[in-house]
Amino acid sequence: MHARPRALAAAAFLAVAALPLTACSSPAPAPAKAVPAAPARHLAPPRPAPVLGAAPHLGEGQELLRVDATSGGRVYELPAAADGPGALAVAPACLGDGTLEVVLPHEMEFTLHCTAGEVAKQLNQISRDRRRKGPTTIALTPSGDVRWNLTVAHDPHPRATPAG
């Protein structure tokens, strides 16, 4: 009689094994843990890009030449007043990577170093004790990606600078 319970057990096992399998779903994944956000950085507002504006007004003397923001090389003949005795002021400014060569033949020559991040300015002056023969010219030659402006003024009666 022992064979019968075994046969029943085997039949039950086969019946269960023959049942169609249903899809099993695994339990829902645990929600991801929140990662704390990096602390907010307080960034300074961006600085406005420098602008090369109009040529400066020089306070003393007569303005002889004023060139607002431009690029490329230029040669200018100054008005006859530039040839007289007194002080001749040359004030260029530039912006961009490169240089600006400024030449008044036989009297003044200098280089202004320009950068993209800041307007470079310079004021140079010569004094004459007598009238110069012939016209006065000024040549400006930029290099690189340079924009520039210029003011030239003449003061026939400059104030004396105290000796110090």
Rank of each mutant, 00 (worst) to 15 (best):
M1D: 07
M1A: 14
H2Y: 07
A3S: 05
P5N: 05
A18H: 04
P20Y: 03
P20V: 07
S25K: 08
A28R: 10
P29F: 06
A30Y: 09
A32S: 11
A32I: 03
V35P: 00
A38M: 09
A40Q: 08
L43K: 03
A44F: 03
P46C: 05
V51E: 13
G53Q: 04
A54H: 09
G61L: 06
G61S: 08
R66G: 15
R66A: 15
A69W: 05
A69R: 14
S71R: 14
G72I: 12
A81W: 00
D83W: 00
P85W: 01
G86L: 02
G86I: 03
P92T: 06
A93W: 01
E101Q: 14
V103L: 15
H106P: 00
E109Q: 15
E109C: 02
F110Y: 15
L112Q: 07
L112S: 02
C114F: 05
T115K: 11
G117P: 00
G117D: 13
A120F: 03
K121G: 05
Q125W: 06
R128L: 11
R131W: 11
K133Q: 13
T136L: 14
I138H: 03
G144E: 04
D145Q: 13
N149Y: 06
T151A: 15
V152C: 02
P156R: 01
R159G: 15
